[in-house]
Simulated assay, not measured.
Amino acid sequence: MTTRTRFTVGELVHHTRFDYRGVIIDVDPVYAGSDEWYENVARSRPPKDQPWYHVLVDGHTHSTYVAERHLEPDIRGEQIEHPTLGQFFDRFLNGRYVRQNDPGAH
């Protein structure tokens, strides 16, 4: 069985519980963190058998690990501010971040 992900790398998202914007830098089809982290941080106990996302947080220096159920598409469509953005993406095009080697980046 293949898990379908709602979001892809480079897509802007909004966290529905903590009201922040960000960009997805990696996708795990199922939870890939430690049991200890899940017990201490994932207080709402989101499902481990659904997608989780690594997200650079707009206006901050950290990234987060977020269950799909807490994310929605970002409707502002504006670029984010993050010091490591350039390590992951080359440019902002049509409302999403892309890498040079991305087939959709032309």
Rank of each mutant, 00 (worst) to 15 (best):
A67H: 02
T16M: 00
D49G: 15
V23C: 02
I24D: 02
R45D: 04
F18T: 09
D90F: 00
T2K: 13
Y53Q: 14
G59Q: 07
T64R: 04
E36M: 08
N94Y: 07
T2G: 09
E36K: 08
G33C: 03
L93H: 09
V57T: 00
G95V: 02
G22H: 02
L85M: 01
W52G: 08
F88E: 13
G77Y: 03
P29F: 13
H70D: 08
F7L: 05
R17P: 07
H14P: 05
R6L: 05
Y31P: 01
Y53P: 07
H82Q: 09
F89E: 00
P47G: 10
A42H: 15
R4C: 06
G86T: 14
F18L: 06
R96A: 11
F7R: 09
H70S: 00
R45K: 13
W37E: 06
T8N: 12
V23T: 01
M1K: 15
N94Q: 07
Y38Q: 15
P73S: 04
F18N: 04
T16R: 01
G22Y: 04
E39L: 12
E11G: 14
P73E: 08
F92V: 05
V57Y: 13
L56W: 13
L85W: 00
R6M: 09
G86I: 04
V27K: 03
G59P: 06
G33I: 12
Y53M: 14
R76S: 10
I80W: 01
M1E: 05
F92H: 04
H82A: 06
P51G: 03
T3L: 06
S44V: 12
T3S: 08
P83V: 00
D19Q: 14
E11T: 13
V23A: 02
I25H: 03
M1L: 15
Q87S: 12
I75K: 15
H14S: 04
Y38F: 11
H70A: 07
F89W: 00
G10W: 06
L71R: 05
T8C: 05
V23W: 01
R21I: 11
G22T: 12
D35N: 14
Q79M: 12
T5D: 02
N40M: 14
L93T: 07
N40R: 03
F7M: 14
Q87P: 03
G86S: 02
P83C: 00
E68Q: 12
G59T: 03
L85E: 01
T16K: 02
V27C: 11
M1I: 12
D49L: 11
Q87D: 01
V27R: 06
N94L: 00
F88H: 08
T8E: 13
E39C: 13
R76N: 09
V13I: 15
L12W: 02
T61K: 11
I25F: 08
P46L: 03
E11F: 13
L93Q: 02
